[in-house]
Structure formats: C-alpha cells, structure tokens
Amino acid sequence: MVFLLTAMALPQDRVSADPVPGMLPNGVGADEVAISAITDASVQRCVHFFEQELAPQAGMRIDRRAMTSSPNLGQIWRADAVSISKPVRASRFVCTNAGKSIEPLDAAGAE
C-alpha cells in the first residue's frame, strides 16, 4: 500500500510543473502523515480565512494543498498560493491549532 501512495504522489513532485520552485510537497515534515481532511475547528477557521478572504484580497489563487498530522503540531494545512496576474508572486500559507503563518516563496526563477 505504501507503494501505491508513493506512485500516486509522483505527479505532485514534478518541479518543472511548479509555477515557483520549492512548492509543495517539499515542505512536509518527516514526522508527518497525510490526512484526508482537516477536522480541527481552529484549523478549519484558519483555512477558511486564507481561502475565502486573504488569497482573493491579495489577488492570489490556491495552487496546491497538503493536509498532514504531526505528533507535535496536530493537524497541519499548507497551501501554496500564486498571483493571478504578473508579476508572479507565491506564498505558502500554513495553519495549525497553534496559529497561522505566511511565508513568501522564491518567485525569482518563475516564468
């Protein structure tokens, strides 16, 4: 079954298709496991904020998401957002029960 999960993840690992180098899934920690849904209410509120408010207001769209669980942080939602118009800008949004963060991704090599 691990083989099947690895085979399914390969298309996401194609860096050449990434608008900006370093986009997900590279940021997922080694001690994390993939989950199918976010059930933590505070993480859900954070996700809603990024998807429905911040990204649209910033002129960005969510390009890629990852949902994981960590022994230390609980449920983690990560999303890479890219600008809708040029110049290309990209940021990684992260939500956990402990809070939220935004990290710019290097758009210098983007087309």
Rank of each mutant, 00 (worst) to 15 (best):
L5N: 08
L5D: 09
T6V: 12
T6E: 14
M8C: 10
M8F: 11
A9C: 05
A9Y: 02
P11W: 07
R14L: 14
A17G: 12
A17L: 15
D18M: 13
P19Y: 15
P19R: 14
P21E: 15
P21Y: 11
P25A: 06
N26F: 07
N26H: 13
A30P: 07
A30K: 14
D31L: 08
D31S: 12
E32A: 10
A34T: 14
A37E: 15
A37Y: 09
I38S: 01
T39E: 09
D40V: 07
Q44Y: 06
R45H: 11
F49Q: 11
F50D: 10
Q52T: 09
Q57D: 12
A58H: 06
M60H: 05
R61D: 11
I62T: 06
D63N: 08
R65K: 10
T68G: 00
T68W: 01
S69L: 00
S69F: 00
S70F: 01
P71W: 04
P71R: 06
N72M: 00
N72G: 00
Q75A: 00
I76M: 00
I76H: 00
V82A: 01
S83Q: 04
I84Q: 12
R89W: 03
A90V: 04
A90P: 03
S91G: 02
N97H: 14
G99W: 07
K100G: 02
S101L: 03
L105K: 08
D106P: 06
D106T: 07
G109H: 10
G109I: 04
A110R: 11
